[in-house]
Nucleic acid binder design. Structure first.
Length: 213
DNA sequence: AGCCAGGCCAAGC
DNA sequence: GCTTGGCATGGC
């Protein structure tokens, strides 16, 4: 049964790495910080995002109201270390303008996807980690790892892959959160573009252990 | 010193 | 509809 595979892989990763307790935050305002972090980390290393987040905090801009009125050029300089800073600053401002005056429970997936610069992964990250809604986050690591494991097809699109996770896992946001965090951990430490299969906790499950053994 | 990173959008077939 | 190029920084 496929479902047991997805859950047993989760358990193995959890046992190996321990709880990741995502999403990492530094301030009290989780919705703001997780949303901004999710936008800033698009195709960008988290280390660079951390610099941009620190700049936002130091400039007292971890706030929808303030960002919505911040000069675009100034915001660009503040988030510059995260790369793609012109596009991302525009997205941060538009997102802040739209979200600052509405109730949390009216932030739906469609609402998020209507904002230019927010796609499916960013939307689902915000929904899951900031709003506790059961959307499994599919990112580049997820695609790479699970296609190497032979559990998804390389050419499946985002929604198809997400459906597989939803179908094969209990509907439990704690598991969704932790599993995605563990996938990122595995992707960074072992299942890199050029994989380091030696000592990988999923070695026994994997088709691609031909690499580097 | 290239390659890579917790994507997304708009053009071009 | 699907594929491709552009966006940008800093770490390794």
């Amino acid at each position: 049964m496929e479902g047991e595979k997805f859950l047993s892989i989760y358990k193995r990763l959890l046992k190996f790495f321990g709880f990741q307790n995502w999403w990492p935050v530094h301030t009290e305002n989780h919705l703001v910080e997780i949303s901004f972090g999710a936008i800033l980390t698009q195709n960008t290393s988290w280390k660079n995002v951390e610099k941009a987040l620190k700049n936002l905090i130091d400039n007292d801009l971890m706030d929808f109201e303030k960002v919505s009125f911040t000069d675009k050029k100034r915001l660009q300089e503040i988030i510059r270390p995260a790369g793609f800073y012109k596009r991302k600053s525009e997205t941060l401002i538009q997102f802040s303008k739209k979200v600052k005056n509405i109730e949390k429970n009216s932030i739906t997936r469609d609402f998020l996807l209507s904002i230019k610069g927010i796609g499916k992964e960013t939307a689902d990250s915000i929904l899951l980690y900031a709003l506790d809604k059961p959307y499994f986050v599919i990112d580049a690591y997820t695609k790479r790892i699970f296609s190497r494991l032979g559990l998804i097809d390389k050419n499946m699109d985002y929604d198809q892959i997400q459906r597989i996770f939803h179908k094969n896992l209990p509907d439990d946001i704690q598991i969704f959160k932790e599993y995605h965090a563990l996938i990122v951990k595995l992707g960074k430490n072992f299942c890199k573009k050029k994989p380091e299969c030696r000592n990988c906790p999923l070695f026994a499950n994997c088709r691609f252990r031909i690499y580097n053994v």
